[in-house]
Design a protein around this nucleic acid. Structure first.
Lengths: 138, 138
DNA sequence: CGGCATCCGAACTGATACTG
DNA sequence: CAGTATCAGTTCGGATGCCG
């Protein structure tokens, strides 16, 4: 009997007992998924281009995590992987139509965050100050 | 000399060397942050209500993680914490105006994911099938 | 009830080494 | 270049005990 070796499901917990759409949402909102989608919204990227571009905004991505992220997004039909059989290898990643819709939502959220940063920083100062006062009150 | 005990920054990596807005975005898109914001969009919740509600969609949240998530969101000025000095204690969490804006973006993304699930599942079948074929080709 | 502090196993992440 | 495999460090999450 063939063991069937368990296809799909790259990385992350992906446990059972939760709504299926939750898994896709986790891929979209994963640490690197967010940045990858936004990058690809501009244009298609090669693997190492993506790695550099993403590293500009967040911290550097390990190639393993980038691979995992891309495979998840590809499996969900959000990212298209175009591997050209040349030497040295060249692989281009781009958004599918489905992926473009998702990426636009994600970018909207990212932009909102960016424009609202001043308010967030203000809130943080107030929060930290209040905490400071409470700890002072012995 | 007082050690000042390092205020702010609850849980998560929060490392240096990345754009500041990236941190807020990570709070918004964190595993539990997403679900908490969506829940609070309906109405304010008590701590244990949130815990139950979030557990419906995703897997159960540990109280530790929920606490951490809420503290991050509160510090960013997205969630308001109202602790009533009664016995037994009662704490209500609700969205601030800032948080409501964010939560609506997040919910939009979640809804999109939900409506597009059929397409995603179709893509997954195609992906897994293609992978199956490739592995068969010895 | 709504936390906070600690310990500990499990899962995730990343640097390294290796393949095509 | 674009990955895969592996090993070690970090974070996550549950369990437990304590406090207001």
């Amino acid at each position: 009997m063939t063991v069937s070796k368990q296809v799909g499901k790259v990385g992350s917990v992906e446990a059972e007992g939760m709504c299926p759409y939750r898994l896709v949402l986790e891929h979209l909102t994963s640490r690197w998924g967010v940045l990858v989608l936004i990058e690809l919204l501009d244009r298609s990227h090669r693997f190492s281009e993506l790695r550099r571009a993403v590293g500009q905004v967040g911290r550097p991505v390990s190639e393993k995590m980038l691979t995992q992220t891309l495979q998840n997004l590809e499996r969900d039909g959000l990212v298209h992987r175009d591997a050209k059989p040349v030497i040295p290898p060249r692989v281009d990643y781009s958004l599918t139509e489905l992926g473009r819709e998702a990426a636009e939502q994600v970018r909207a959220l990212a932009r909102w965050t960016h424009t609202r940063m001043p308010d967030v920083e203000k809130a943080r100062l107030a929060y930290d100050e209040a905490r400071e006062l409470r700890s002072r009150a012995s």
